[in-house]
Every structure is written in C-alpha cells, then in structure tokens.
Design a binder for these strands. Structure first.
Length: 933
DNA sequence: GCCGTTACGTA
DNA sequence: CGTACGTAACGGCT
C-alpha cells in the first residue's frame, strides 16, 4: 500500500490525531479493571477501551491518516515555567501500570505512528499536527479529553471529546463550543484562564465560573479586552480578578498550545496502512483479546477500501489445468525437483445435532494442486478420466517423485477411504498410497513452533511468507469448508488449489532452511513424518467397542445422576437448583447454607472437588455428599455418552491423534479423547471394560488386547539426565523406587518404609518434574508447609544431582531461550525473561518439565515406529491401535500374542539407551480393563 | 452462536 | 502457589 492517492494537497484527506495518554486514562476509568485481566495478572481495561474507541472513531470519522501523540515523563516548558503545573494529581492506580506501553506496542503493530517530543506535551503535538494538516488543505480530527484542544477548533478541525467514559465521542465544532460556553473556540482558552483548571493545578479567579467569564469575554472581545478594562469591572468578582491577575495571565500562557513544533515525521507518514497481522496476533494472544481481533481487521479493511489486492502468490508460475492425460504427462516430464501437492478434501459430514464430524468419515479428495518452482497445475478429480486418475495414483505412489504436502495424515486417511466410484479409487494401503514425502509443512511448522495455537495453511502462510492466502480449502486441521472472497466459478476455486500448492512449495523452502539451521531435519524425516503414517493407520483401524455394555453403563450412570440429584434437592429442603451451575451452587453453599468460604475464583468461590471435600469435613452437610455423587455420576455419564456418539459404522471408535497440539511433543487425542478414559475408580474402570478386542480383517482367529507401558518413564529420564548415582543404582538394581527413595529420605531400612512415607516421597518424586513447590506439596499431601519443606530438603540432600539438574535446565533455557529434548525437540520460552513474576515462574516450571515430558514423548514415538515396523516386517496381522503417552495398545490375534509381546518389550525398551533400564510392563485381556496389569 | 469460566478425566 | 492435554456445561455477550 502506497500513499500515492494521499498527496499532501489532497483535500479529501482526514488526519485523526489522538492524545494517547488522555484517552487511555479515560478508558481506564470507564471500564472495570477487575474484569480485564490476563491469566498473569496484567490489567488490560485501558488497552481494550482505547482500542474500542479507536475502532469506533475509524468507522465514524473515516480518517485517511492517523497518529497518536504521547506525553513524555520529562519536564515540559510548562512545568519549568510553573513548577506547580499538574502537581497534586492523584497517584496513577497500580492497575494502569504497563497499559500505556501495551497500547504503544499495538499502535506499532497497526503501523500507526506514536509521536512524542522531549519538553512538550501530547497536546502540543496534537495542535501542531492538526494545524499542519489544515495548512495542507486536509481535515483534522483531534481526539482528546483535554479541553485545551478546543482552541484548535475551526471549519477544518474538530475535537472529538469523550463523554460517558469513552463510549461516546461527540464532535465539538465552533457551534458546539459557542453553545456550551458562550464563546468562540479561539476565545475558549481566555475563558479557561479566568476560570482556572483544577486538573492542571491552575487556579483561576475565585468566584468566577464559566458563565461570568464568558460574559466578560463577550463584552470586551477577549481576555486582552478584559485586561485592558480591568479597572472598569466592578463588584466582588472584579476585585477578585484584579487580585488574581497574574494567575490569569500565567494560565493563559500555559494553556496556549504550541502549533509550530518540529515533528519527527511528515504528515504523509501517518497514512493508514494495513496492520502487521502477525504482530497484532501475537500481542492479542498475550492480552487474551479475541473478539476484538476480527473487528479490528474488518475495520481496517473497510477503511482501506476492502481487499488487499496483491495475490499472495507473487512470482507464482502460470497455472495449467490438467484435464487430459497428455497435460499430466507434459507436467510430469517437466519435473526435476520435489513437487508440492495440495489435496482439497471435502469435509466429512457433520452430525448437526452434536456438531461433530460423522465418525469414520474422512472426506474425499476432490481436487489436487501441484507446484514446483517453475510450474503450477491443478486437477479436478471429479472431472478426470479413469486413466488420468490412475496416472495420479501412480505418481503419488512412485518414490521417484519426492513430494511436499500439508497434513499428510489427513490425506492418507482421505485417500484410504475415497469412494471406489471416484476416478481416484480408495487406496487403503497407507504404506503405498503416497510414497516419497519429503516434507509435511504442517509437521515442520510444529517442530519450529510447537506452542502455536493454529496451524491452518492460511496462518502458516501469514507467518512464514508474510502474505495472505485469501481463502483456502479445509482439511482436518482447519475445520470447515469456506470459500470466502472468490465467486462460485469452479475455475477460480481450482486456481485457489494451485495457489495453495504454490504456498506449500514456498513454505517448504522457508521452513526447510530453518529446520536445517537448527539440526531438526532428522526429527522431521525420521520421526514425525513416519509417525504420521503410523497414526493414520491407527486412526483408520480404531478400537472395538462393546456397545451393549456401553448402553447399559449409560443407563446405570443416568440412574445414578437422577438419584444423586433427588437426594441433593431433598437435602436442601426440596429446592431445585441446577447442580451443574457453579453460580447456582455458590448461592446454595455460601448464602442459603452459609458455609465457610472456599478458594476465590474470578466469579466467586470455588466449588471444585477439593473445596467440597474441605466443606464436607467442616460442615458434614449431606448436600455436599450428594453433590459430589452427582458430579461423579454426570462425569461418567458424559464420558459414556461421548463414546456412544463416536462409534462409527464398523462399531469401532476411531479417535484422531493430533500430532501438533502439545507444546512438549506429546500426541493428543480427540473426537473422542481416548487418552483420558477413567482408570482410578471402580466405576471409571467399568468404562475401560467396554473397549474390547475386535475382529481382524485378515484373520478369523480370536483377538486379544495387549497393553504395554513404560514404568516410571519420566523419573527414569530424570535419573538419566541428572546422572544421579543413587537413583541410577536403584533402577539398575530393580528396586521399588519409591521404597528406596523413602528409605534414603527418612533414613530407615527399606523394609521399614511405611505406606505414608512411601506416598510422600512418591508425590515428591512425581512433583519434581513439574516444578512442585513446598506449598503445592503441602497442599497435596495435606501436611504443613514446614513439613513439606523439610521433606524437600532431605530429598535433595540425598539426591542432590537431581536438584542440580533441574536448576541447570532452567538456567540453560534462560540462556538459550529454549529447552531441548533427547531428540533435539525445542520449546521456546520467551517468558523466562519476563518482568512479570507469575509469567516468569510459569515459564520456569514449563522449562523444567518440557525436556522430561518431551523426551518421554520422543521415546514412545520412536518405539511406535519400531513396533509398527517389526509387526509389518515379521508379517504379523496384529495391529497397534492406541497410544496413551506412556502406553501402547495392540489388538493381536491370539496366535501372535507371544510374538507381539516380545516385539513390544524389545522395541519399547530399546527406544533409547539410557543410564537406567527402560522397564516395560505388559498385560493382556479381552478388554482394555482386563489388559491392565 | 460465540466465548470465557469452571470443573474434571488422563499421563 | 505442579506440567501437558480435551470435553462439556453454564451463562453472559453479541
């Protein structure tokens, strides 16, 4: 965007210049600070109010140019002339702290200049700019809560003055001033000088208000006239005027705004341009601003004349439409480098009632875009001949052609299930459907930035290429199909797919370089990409479900919910409240029943399980017991209902493993989440019992579930990384770790370690990797903070290397800016440098945990590749179906149980060679519950 | 309908 | 005032 249409003489230009501090301060008092706080305690009410005001002003005033003027902390000519100037003001509230700086950062991101000038106030900058604008033949709009700016008003300059907080900013023109004060704008400072300005600590003439002052000014034509006739003014007020003559003259000098400052930038440089979306997104993420984000972009787009034209694909080679086999052959022969392939996958059907994708539906590939550095092409699958379809399939499975894709796993799944009637018939063999994938830019982005929130192609293009992809087509990671910004014309849609392929091509170039720089290429090539293929298989296979038992569980839990609810109502005298509403519960517990207050939350007092347990101890009220039973039962019912809704047509559940969700490198599971199926309570374990061994398509044999989990993987990784001799010895000797540690810490013989001792050191050991504090430990163990502190001290006395390691992890992370796992997976933690203590300490705990949790994730991912490879190479029919962080679940046919078990143990325990053994425990059974050991 | 909050399941 | 996740319900907002 250039300023070509905004030359300095253009009379259609409107400059909006804002007195930043004045507006921020108004916004601060207009919105409750308590309601605008980030998780880390930074207040944002002034920032939010300011932005809202800014957007409203852009919409209403439609400026072509914007600038924000700021006061500096340094003395001004006014304070030098009159030291009491602005003295005696109330102290700025603590909650205001930091908000000015945030606003300035946002202005930077919006490419709106922040202007400040040593020795002058924002007002003077505002005055100079408005005057300059007028001289250039522009209009000017001054946004300020300082009435001194009224003196600037004329035909071309209007002041927008905040009323009712910052929600209304009516324009003040000459008529408004005349009407309100009875003087012209030019005379307003005369009036103000007589009346005085409390806010600036400028007393005027006692007893003289705006009314009298206006009358004098009218009569004598201005302050000068008043002073010339000072002896003709009678009465007490005349007397007072004569006595305060100096103050009035001083006031008039001080409230005169400077209009001829040397500014650090030209008017033209305030032209509105597009915001830096990345910077805005980053700031808004930190500020937890979500709804205002779109409003901001829309406002800017509308004001700037809608669309940013430049197609994101500068330098993009011309696109050819492939609709004949000869086109395809010509395209192929021209290729001498990896081909970027974009697959347009129709989104799966959605169950409208619950807004979830239909279980087991992975969509179909309807179009493909292709790109290399010198060619782009697009192919409409529906319009393709069978011959052309076959040619594409051959290309995809040909390892001679290297490929770059976005979201390999989704493509493999769609390809595996596309209807056989399509020119692109189903390619159920995930091993061969696409071969030669050199990069999946989705996975590359994850490795480069594992704590991003979204990895939509649009977002990646924005971040890495700094361009916009107007609309792109949905895949698994994007959610929905929307083609905004282009018309229905099929050709245009197809062109978009080619552009997407081109973007993938360019992303690959940029990201490939970054990955190479940080030696992360093996992590992509040898771990994440092959894992994507394994995960695609696991998702396609799914896990067997005993629907009948699940149905009866639902009935049982529903019944329990009902019973608990009735008892709960009965125990509070028949009052019917919504037990699922924390708000209503608060009323019952803390008002009706007048129970002691619990932990504070944002909206009142906590009613979580811990708090209820505390209350039960204190009050022994039956309502609490019933409420807890209700909570338990609803949670279980909800889990069961969720599972029932996710059963696919093959009577199995196909969870989706997200490979890009967890910042530490772990997988996550969704739709449904099979990584949080209950296991601790008997009722919960009933749910594990409905996950069963199902039928194997290649065998008539009976099947069994085999589970294998790493024993204390994170503790072992800590022992390995810290090289703590005691811990390593204990693991090598195969001792009961917690008993061993307990014996050391409490200085008793291992056989004399009591359950209570063991529990304490166990909690401590587990807590270590999370950055547990003595306070946290005391809470968890329900012991005093002193006792917890003693426990920690004697723990670290015995295992000093662990403490040194943990400290060192944080220190190194602070130095490097990131942590690293055993396979070199990085997590960047900029907050380690934050001034905000809460933020910084959170980052420190994350730094502590990330290498441990992340290395464990690395290990099991590596093990999964090993297990899958062995199963296939050994020709087994058994299949890996689930991963739950430190556990793998296989569905094996009975004749392969021993072989599969051996593979699991071997591959999992050899995933890495540590200074301690990697113990793997295996269990088998018909159900997941039975297979637990 | 969207979104933040609260609550709770897992490793 | 212990890390990492996903899901669901409520209730205020648009």
């Amino acid at each position: 965007m250039t300023a070509t249409n905004n030359s300095a003489s253009d009379s259609s230009n409107t400059l909006m210049v804002i007195d930043g501090h004045s507006m921020a301060y108004r916004a601060f008092f207009a919105l409750p600070a308590d309601n605008f706080q980030t998780a880390t305690g930074q207040h944002t009410n002034a920032v939010y109010g300011f932005l809202n005001m800014l957007l409203a002003m852009i919409r209403e005033q439609q400026p072509t140019h914007i600038a924000v003027a700021w006061d500096m902390d340094t003395p001004t000519f006014r304070s030098e002339q009159y030291p009491e100037y602005k003295a005696g003001r109330d102290k700025t509230p603590d909650e205001f702290y930091g908000q000015i700086d945030l606003i300035k950062q946002i202005m930077d991101a919006l490419n709106i200049p922040n202007i400040e000038l040593d020795g002058y106030e924002a007002d003077d900058i505002v005055a100079t700019m408005a005057t300059n604008a007028e001289e250039a033949g522009w209009k000017a709009r001054v946004v300020s809560g300082d009435r001194d700016t009224f003196q600037l008003i004329n035909d071309n300059i209007t002041v927008l003055y905040p009323m009712r907080g910052v929600s209304e900013l009516p324009p003040f023109d000459a008529a408004t001033i005349e009407e309100r004060y009875g003087v012209s704008p030019a005379q307003y400072p005369d009036l103000a000088a007589l009346v005085g300005e409390t806010a600036d600590n400028l007393p005027g003439v006692p007893g003289v208000g705006p009314g009298f002052a206006a009358r004098w000014i009218k009569k004598y034509g201005g302050l000068q006239g008043v002073l010339d006739n000072i002896d003709n003014i009678g009465g007490k007020k005349g007397e007072a005027l004569r006595e305060n003559l100096e103050a009035v003259q001083r006031n008039r000098e001080l409230n005169k705004l400077v209009t001829n400052l040397e500014l650090p930038l030209d008017l033209d440089e305030t032209v509105m341009v597009n915001p830096d979306r990345n910077q805005v997104a980053e700031l808004f993420d930190a500020l937890e601003f979500n709804t205002i984000r779109d409003r901001l972009f829309t406002t800017f787009e509308q004001q700037l004349g809608t669309t940013e034209e430049p197609p994101p694909a500068e330098d993009m080679p011309e696109t050819i439409l492939i609709d004949e086999i000869t086109d395809w052959e010509a395209f192929l022969t021209s290729i001498s480098e990896p081909v970027s392939v974009f697959c347009h996958i129709t989104p799966p059907a959605v169950i409208t009632k619950r807004k979830i994708p239909a279980p087991g539906d992975y969509g179909a590939i309807r179009a493909l875009g292709f790109a290399t550095s010198h060619a782009t092409a697009v192919l409409d699958v529906d319009a393709a001949s069978e011959e052309l379809g076959q040619a594409v399939i051959a290309f995809l499975s040909d390892s001679a052609y290297a490929k770059v894709v976005y979201d390999l796993k989704s493509i493999l799944k769609a390809l595996a299930t596309t209807a056989s009637s399509s020119p692109l018939p189903a390619r159920p063999d995930v091993n061969t459907s696409i071969v030669g994938v050199e990069d999946d830019v989705l996975l590359s982005a994850y490795i480069l930035q594992p704590d991003r929130r979204g990895y939509d192609l649009t977002d990646l293009v924005q971040t890495y290429l700094n361009t916009r992809l107007e609309s792109i087509v949905a895949t698994e990671n994007q959610g929905q199909l929307e083609l905004e910004g282009i018309d229905d014309d099929n050709a245009q849609q197809l062109a978009q797919y080619a552009r997407n392929a081109w973007m993938i091509h360019r992303l690959n170039e940029v990201m490939g370089e970054q990955l190479a720089e940080r030696d992360a290429v093996p992590l992509l090539h040898d771990l994440e990409i092959p894992l994507s293929i394994v995960l695609a298989k696991m998702e396609l296979i799914g896990i067997g479900i005993d629907r009948e038992r699940l149905d009866s569980l639902l009935a049982g839990f529903t019944n329990e919910v009902e019973k608990a609810q009735q008892s709960a109502f009965a125990s509070i005298g028949g009052q019917e409240v919504n037990l699922a509403s924390p708000k209503q519960l608060q009323t019952v517990l803390f008002e009706t029943l007048d129970m002691p207050k619990t932990r504070r939350t944002k909206t009142g007092y906590s009613t979580d399980a811990d708090s209820l347990a505390d209350l039960l101890e204190k009050t022994d009220h039956p309502f609490l017991h019933n409420l807890m039973a209700f909570r338990d039962a609803t949670k279980l019912r909800q889990t069961v209902q969720g599972l029932l809704d996710s059963i696919a047509d093959d009577e199995r559940i196909h969870t989706r493993f997200s490979q890009t969700a967890a910042a530490t490198g772990r997988l996550s599971s969704l739709n449904p989440n099979l990584q949080n199926i209950p296991v601790r309570t008997p009722a919960g374990r009933q749910i594990r019992d409905i996950f069963v061994a199902g039928t194997n398509p290649r065998s008539d044999e009976r099947t069994t579930l085999l589970t294998a989990d790493y024993s204390q993987i994170e503790m072992r990784i800590m022992a390995h990384m810290s090289e703590d001799a005691g811990l390593i010895q204990a693991y090598q000797d195969g001792e009961d770790l917690h008993r061993f540690v307990g014996a050391q810490v409490f200085e008793v013989e291992p056989e004399d370690v009591t359950t209570s001792m063991r529990d304490k050191v166990k909690a401590m050991s587990y807590g270590l990797a999370y950055g547990l504090s003595s306070f946290g430990l005391s809470r968890q163990l329900r012991i005093s903070v002193d006792e917890a502190r003693e426990l920690m001290t004697s723990y670290f006395d015995r295992f000093g290397a662990v403490q040194r390691y943990l400290r060192n992890v944080v220190r190194q992370a602070r130095k490097d800016g990131y942590t690293q796992t055993m396979l070199g997976r990085r997590r960047y933690l900029p907050d380690l440098q934050s001034d905000n203590r809460q933020l910084r300490e959170m980052a420190e705990r994350a730094a502590l945990n990330a290498p441990i949790q992340g290395s464990a994730a690395d290990l099991i991912k590596k093990a999964m590749l090993g297990v899958q490879d062995r199963l296939e190479r050994d020709g087994l029919y058994s299949r890996m179906i689930l991963q739950v962080h430190d556990e793998l679940i296989l569905e094996v046919i009975d004749s392969e149980v021993d072989a599969a078990e051996q593979i699991l143990v071997e591959e999992m325990s050899s995933a890495a060679t540590l200074k301690v053994p990697l113990d793997v425990q295996v269990g088998k059974g018909y159900s997941w519950h039975e297979a637990a050991h």
